[in-house]
């Protein structure tokens, strides 16, 4: 029984990393190198947030930190800062996970919106404090709004295709421990 639980956990962890790799891969394809593209949603962030509010043990902080740090390196962002923001947001949501199990979806969405907005603001303000050259604020805001709007899509994708559902209050795992 214990092996089943552990293998399932690792299967989902592998899946989250594989999906992140797929996203990085799709972005790196040299198809539209021209400027003026519309920034899409931050898929890795969305998956991490959706999963942490459903099964927090599937997205350990260290794993998310390493994956986001890797995207920092590849996408020419300042190293480490966005990863730190993501870990802080993730841990905030993780601490609210137990309380938000019977929350209606709209409230959950608003909570995630609040977290993403404060993460983006913190990121932009820190960069400004350290006098780092920044992309236009409008682009950053468009990406933030796209990420927030795509949250329900990520929830539907995780639920329907990966079978990741919210735990009921007082749910137990196969070993009988309270989740």
């Amino acid at each position: 029984m214990a092996e089943v639980v552990v293998t399932r956990r690792w299967r989902y962890r592998t899946r989250s990393v594989a999906l992140s790799f797929l996203d990085v891969f799709a972005r790196l394809l040299p198809l539209d190198a021209g400027a003026g593209r519309f920034p899409g949603p931050d898929v890795i962030l969305l998956l991490a947030f959706v999963w942490v509010l459903r099964r927090p043990d599937y997205v350990p902080a260290l794993l998310v930190a390493v994956v986001v740090l890797m995207t920092d390196v590849l996408f020419l962002r300042p190293l480490g800062l966005w990863a730190a923001c993501v870990v802080l947001g993730l841990e905030f949501l993780r601490s609210r996970e137990a309380a938000s199990r019977d929350l209606p979806f709209l409230l959950e969405w608003m909570m995630v919106t609040g977290v993403i907005v404060s993460m983006t603001l913190g990121y932009v303000i820190t960069l400004a404090l350290f006098a780092v050259d920044q992309p236009a604020l409008g682009l950053t805001l468009i990406q933030m709004i796209m990420t927030i709007l795509c949250y329900p899509l990520a929830v539907v994708f995780s639920g329907r295709i990966l079978g990741l559902r919210k735990m009921a209050p007082g749910a137990v795992d196969q070993l009988g421990h309270r989740l």
């Binding site: 972005r27 790196l28 040299p30 920034p39 590849l74 996408f75 020419l76 682009l139 950053t140």
Partner: peptide
């Protein structure tokens, strides 16, 4: 590959 980010 390209930069993968719309900002760079």
């Amino acid at each position: 590959a390209d930069s993968g980010s719309p900002f760079r």
